[in-house]
Amino acid sequence: MEYCSVLCFTWCILVLSATGRTADKIVIDIANNITAGEEYSGSCTLKDEDKDLYVESTEGSGCNVTHGNIPQNAQKIDFNLTCDNKNDSYTATIECHSSKVYCEEKINVIPKPKITTKPTNVTTMVGLPVTLSCHVKGDPNHYWVGWMYRDSIIQEGEQYATSTARSTRGTHHYLTIHTVKQSGNYVCKVYTIHGPVDETSNSVTIENDATEPTPTSLMDVVYKLLFS
């Protein structure tokens, strides 16, 4: 079997960009870092007149490669890659080869971020400040947190402030409500480049905050005026 040149080192890689690497005859295009449990697209492209191109993951790597039917004499394969979630990051290998040429690409698989704190229920008085905490296990370089209230992303300003604190087990994400005005739910939502992956809802209740029912008829209004 003919291998890539010595300049490509043992796995035939010449770095061209953050997501594409090339070898003497095969180009493997896949992200350097992927999040476990999510599906990523990639491709293998044959650069000479060789035939019968194949793609697969190394046995025992924890990753699964899927693709459609490969036509005869194919010189490019588009594939999808999904890797198992583990406690720590690990390296997986993707192989592309033909009957004469072989190349492999090593990628870093990052554990899927996860919220490890239980929902918080806070009871307070109107006008007081409240700080909520959301602890996330995962690499903060590969996820971000958005705090939401009534299905809208909270923006920092006079009403709200956000902060973080790293620990050996993850990252604490804090939301401070400077002045609580009404009861409600505040959602800590974790995102990756593929979208939301986890969330938890924290309730803030104002003590003795009772909402009176709205009158639904003229009789209700008369009764309220006469006897309230």
Rank of each mutant, 00 (worst) to 15 (best):
M1S: 15
M1C: 13
M1R: 11
E2R: 15
Y3R: 11
S5L: 08
S5H: 13
W11D: 14
I13S: 15
I13Q: 10
I13V: 14
V15W: 08
A18E: 11
R21W: 14
I26S: 02
V27S: 11
I28L: 06
I30E: 00
N32K: 05
N33G: 07
N33L: 05
I34E: 00
E38Y: 06
E39S: 11
E39Y: 11
Y40P: 00
S41D: 07
S43I: 03
L46E: 01
L46S: 04
K47H: 05
D48R: 08
D48I: 06
D52T: 06
D52C: 06
D52H: 03
E56A: 09
S57M: 12
T58C: 15
E59H: 03
E59P: 01
V65I: 07
G68T: 10
G68I: 13
Q72I: 06
Q72W: 02
A74K: 09
A74N: 13
D78M: 09
F79A: 02
N80K: 10
L81M: 03
L81A: 05
T82V: 15
N85T: 09
D88N: 13
T93G: 07
I94P: 00
C96I: 03
C96N: 07
S99N: 14
K100C: 06
V101P: 07
Y102F: 11
C103I: 07
E104P: 01
K106P: 04
I107P: 01
I110S: 09
I110M: 11
P111D: 12
K112C: 12
I115F: 00
T116S: 14
T117A: 04
K118W: 00
N121M: 05
V122Q: 05
T124W: 01
T124C: 05
V126R: 08
G127W: 03
P129L: 02
T131A: 04
S133V: 03
S133A: 15
C134H: 00
V136F: 00
K137R: 13
G138F: 01
D139K: 06
D139Q: 03
W144A: 10
W147A: 12
M148H: 03
R150W: 12
I153H: 08
Q155P: 01
E156N: 07
G157T: 05
T162V: 14
A165W: 05
A165F: 03
R166K: 14
T168Q: 08
R169K: 07
R169Y: 08
T171A: 00
Y174G: 09
T176A: 03
T179N: 15
T179M: 09
S183N: 04
V187F: 11
Y191S: 05
H194R: 10
P196H: 07
V197F: 02
E199K: 08
E199N: 12
T200Q: 06
V204P: 00
I206M: 07
E207L: 06
N208D: 12
N208M: 10
D209Y: 03
E212W: 14
E212T: 15
P213Q: 04
T216R: 09
L218V: 15
M219F: 05
D220L: 04
D220N: 13
K224M: 10
L226E: 04
F227I: 04
F227E: 15
S228K: 12
S228P: 04
S228V: 06
